[in-house]
Design a binder for these strands. Sequence first.
DNA 1: AGGGATGATTGGAA
DNA 2: TTCCAATCATCCCT
Length: 344
Amino acid sequence: MDDQTRMLTGLTGLAGLQQADVGDPDSVRKQQSLGQPQQDIGDILQQIMAITDESLDEAQARKHALNCHRMKPALFSVLCEIKEKTVLSIRGVQEEDPPDPQIMRLDNMLLAEGVSGPEKGGGSAAAAAAAAAAGGSPTDSSIEHSDYRAKLAQIRQIYHAELEKYEQACSEFTNHVMNLLREQSRTRPISPKEIERMVAIIHRKFSSIQMQLKQSTCEAVMILRSRFLDARRKRRNFNKQATEVLNEYFYSHLSNPYPSEEAKEELAKKCGITVSQVSNWFGNKRIRYKKNIGKFQEEANLYAVKTAVDAANVSAQASQANSPATPNSGTERQVPLCCLDNKM
DNA sequence: AGGGATGATTGGAA
DNA sequence: TTCCAATCATCCCT
């Protein structure tokens, strides 16, 4: 049975509808049950078409009569079915979209940066690590860090506020459209499926707006990040005291200038820098010393003397305080004039 | 301004 | 992962 036939069959209930009968379903039933000749479907359609030619009152009355007709649900259901099979099904195929990879990428990025998702260490932890590696005085890095964190928090706040606004607008609009369509479904054939589809369309539209929001948020984070990372490049030399502490350790452990993790932590604490900065410093120092031992000889001698004097002071204090002590027993430091071991 | 010094980064090896 | 070696980027002295 094709759609046309089905429609006609579905409409047979309305056949024989006459102006006088409209609004009186009983008379239709009576006519049907009595097997009265049924009018052609064309008559009804003509009556509907003719509504526009009638006076407003007449048209209203006829519309009302048609709306109240007991076969209306059947008619609407058939029309909905036809609609479903033609226009909507074509559109439905076209609009079925897979999860957008672009939006997934944006979501992942926002999550990783700590902008979306629950408040967490994410971006701020990364910022902390970067700021810690930024060098310079601890005050500088903490200023940069808090600055970065504050800006990120600001972005996060704006993002969530906007997102909430969009979501609210979306649900309000969806409700409005749904109510409207439900209302209209009394006067024109609208299936629940069609309403569902309309809701999906609205959500798609809003999600494309959301994508724009996500995109611009990502851009803002990237700009902030690049500015922050650029700042990281602006290194400061360690202060004199820190360099001295590091050099002292280096030259007093010249035979094995590889501080343990604990030693690095202690040096970092003493110098007010991070452990990775200590590692960087030792890495640079080893390679530069090895490349030009001659150039560093003077410096090495200087620290050797300093170390020796310190050691002497320590042992003098020890011998004063206690019984006679072995020279240098109070320090682990080695005499630093030897070459680096074969590790280098 | 130029150049050396120095802290950070990167890629590869162990 | 740690270290080396090369390199980059910036500082800072002359």
